[in-house]
Lab assay of single mutants.
Amino acid sequence: EIHIRTNGEEQARKVYKMLAKRNYDVKIEQHNGQWVVTAS
Rank of each mutant, 00 (worst) to 15 (best):
T38Y: 08
E9T: 04
Y16D: 05
W35P: 00
Q30G: 04
K21E: 14
E10F: 07
S40G: 06
I28A: 02
A39H: 05
S40M: 09
A12L: 03
I28D: 00
E9D: 03
R22S: 09
Q34S: 08
N32Q: 07
D25H: 13
Y16E: 11
K21D: 15
E29Y: 14
T6M: 11
M18T: 06
V37I: 08
V26S: 02
E9P: 11
I2M: 06
Q11L: 11
A20T: 09
A39I: 15
R13F: 06
A20D: 04
Q34F: 14
N7M: 09
V26L: 03
R5I: 14
K14W: 13
I2Y: 06
R5A: 07
Y24I: 07
Q11S: 08
N7Y: 11
E10K: 13
M18V: 08
G8V: 11
R22F: 14
N23R: 08
N23F: 15
N23P: 03
R13K: 12
Y24T: 04
A12H: 00
K14L: 09
V37G: 00
E1I: 15
Q30K: 11
N7A: 12
R13L: 10
A39K: 03
E1H: 15
K21N: 09
A12C: 15
E10A: 14
H3A: 08
I4N: 01
G33K: 04
Q11V: 08
D25V: 13
Y16V: 09
E1F: 14
K21P: 02
R22K: 12
Q34L: 10
Y24V: 07
E1S: 12
E9W: 14
I2E: 02
K17S: 09
E10V: 10
R5H: 12
M18Q: 11
W35V: 01
R22D: 07
R5D: 03
M18H: 10
N23A: 08
K14P: 02
E9H: 07
I2H: 05
G33A: 04
A39L: 14
V36Q: 05
A12G: 02
G8S: 15
V36S: 05
W35D: 00
Y24R: 06
E1R: 13
K21G: 10
V37Y: 00
V26G: 02
K14V: 05
V36E: 04
H3C: 15
I2N: 02
E29W: 13
Q11I: 10
E29D: 06
R5L: 13
L19F: 08
N23Q: 08
V15P: 00
V15D: 02
W35G: 00
V15K: 03
G33P: 01
E9V: 10
E29N: 07
T38W: 06
Y16S: 10
M18E: 15
H31F: 12
K17F: 08
H3V: 15
R5S: 07
R22L: 15
Y24Q: 05
H3D: 03
I4E: 01
Q11M: 11
A12I: 02
Y24K: 06
R13N: 06
R22W: 15
M18G: 05
T6A: 08
I2G: 02
T6N: 03
K14S: 05
W35A: 01
V26M: 02
D25M: 13
I28V: 06
G8I: 14
A12T: 02
S40H: 10
